[in-house]
Structure formats: C-alpha cells, structure tokens
C-alpha cells in the first residue's frame, strides 16, 4: 500500500502537511525515518502508530523543526520547511501546538502562567492574555485551579494544562507525542476527547500513540510506522481510501 497522495486527492482537499521522500538518520548508516511520503489535509485527524523506535517522535520533531530531515522535502502550508533557517523556526512554532507525554509544565509557575506563556510570546496585551487563559482553562475544565502549581495537579489535569497551552495560540497544527502515555484509561479518554474537540474546530491534529484501543475507538486515519517506514495508511472509518 502506498501513502503517496494521488493528484485527485490533493485537488479534493487542501493539504496542510506534505512530506516527500523524507529520511532522517541521526547516526550514519542508521535510519530513524526512511523515504516517508505522506500528506495530511487541513483539519484532518491522524494517528501515528508503531512499535517503540519506529520513528513516531522523529516524524513529529521534523514537523516542528526540532530536527532537520537528512533527505526529502517537508511542505507545511505550501512552504518548504526542510531547510528552514534557524531564525525562521520561532515563526513556524507559533502556528503549531505541541503536547508531550511528560507535559513539560514549569513547576514554579501557576497553571494560569503556564498557559499564558504562549500568548505572551505572541505579544498579546495582558488583559487579552488573562481573558483568553481563563477561557482556555474553562474549556479544559480547570478554571478553578488556575492559581495552583502544576505539581499539585493530577497527571490528567497537568496534561489538560499542557493542552490549553498548546491551543492558546489557535495553532493550525496540533502535534501530540503519546499525550496519554502516563495516564490511566479514564483520563486518556478525557484528554483524547479534548484533542478531538480541537480537531472538530478546524485544527489539524497528529497524535503519536501506542494505545491501540484508543486508536480503534476514534476510528480516525492511522499511519502505521515500522523501522522508519510507513507500513500502512488506514483511512478513517467511513472514508474511502
């Protein structure tokens, strides 16, 4: 099965992410990603699955320019980011939200301040920052915890804060690397529902996960990686490939 988009497909839906023959090798002679070609449409929700070491994290890192591809082209919104200048990386990241398994919250800042960082970097005025942070925390059901510190929150709550931070700048692309890896099934559902909700509102979402029951439950398009190659590109339930 090929992951390459047919011309008809690109015409049908606007692509947000396009990768052409992308390879990444951290060490000479080994490949974390190998000849990956794929396309993700605007507003699409995609799961990225595969065994440990398959290259899921690497693929996400290429998309938010934490790593550069060794070969191939990566087009984001029509712009080639494969050879991005360092000075252009911040601009790219302001349009992308990222969530990690370990939350990456600042322990010495309140929930509110953690979420506000995104908006402060965007230079939004303080009043707008406060208003928007409150709305975001309300969205993830944590407005009453806004003055607490992250470590006094449960794992699920911390991930909700991280998600609020990632969504604060209204990114067009949300990348999540095993966002529920540290959470029990009930909290997993809660977080995945919030992510799915962001997707419904128009954000393109790519979620890397080991959690196959969750993948099955949502029935979204799934890219299966093995040893750095795309082994399967399964269309969302009810969508003809």
């Amino acid at each position: 099965m090929s992951a390459a988009p047919s011309p008809g497909e690109s015409a049908r839906r606007d692509a947000l992410v396009q990768m052409y023959h992308v390879s990444k090798s951290y060490l000479p002679g080994t490949f974390a990603l190998r000849d990956v070609t794929l396309e993700v449409a605007k507003g699409e929700f995609v799961f990225l699955t595969g065994p440990s070491g398959a290259g899921k994290t690497t693929l996400l890192k290429l998309l938010f320019a934490a790593e550069k591809p060794s070969e191939g082209q990566i087009i984001l919104r029509g712009r080639n980011i494969a050879r991005l200048r360092d000075s252009a990386i911040p601009g790219l990241r302001r349009r992308i939200g990222v969530v990690f398994q370990d939350f990456k919250l600042l322990a010495n800042r309140t929930v509110e301040e953690n979420v506000a960082v995104t908006l402060e970097v965007l230079g939004r005025p303080p009043r707008e920052v406060r208003r928007r942070v409150f709305a975001l925390l309300k969205q993830v059901g944590l407005q009453h915890r806004r003055h607490h510190f992250p470590l006094s929150l449960s794992g699920g709550e911390q991930q909700r804060v991280a998600l609020a931070r990632a969504l604060a700048g209204e990114p067009e692309l949300l990348l999540a690397d095993e966002p529920t890896g540290n959470l029990d099934p009930e909290l997993t559902l809660e977080i995945m529902d919030l992510i799915a909700h962001a997707s419904v509102r128009g954000t393109t979402v790519i979620v890397a996960t080991h959690d196959l029951p969750t993948v099955d439950r949502y029935g979204k398009r799934t890219l299966h990686l093995e040893a750095g190659r795309i082994k399967e590109d399964r269309a969302a339930v009810g969508v003809r490939p």
Partner: peptide, 9 residues
C-alpha cells in the same frame, strides 16, 4: 526549552 517550543525567538 518551553519558550523555544511555543515559538519565542
């Protein structure tokens, strides 16, 4: 790290 992640120059 986080500042860089959310796009701070």
């Amino acid at each position: 790290e986080i500042l860089s992640l959310v796009g701070a120059s």
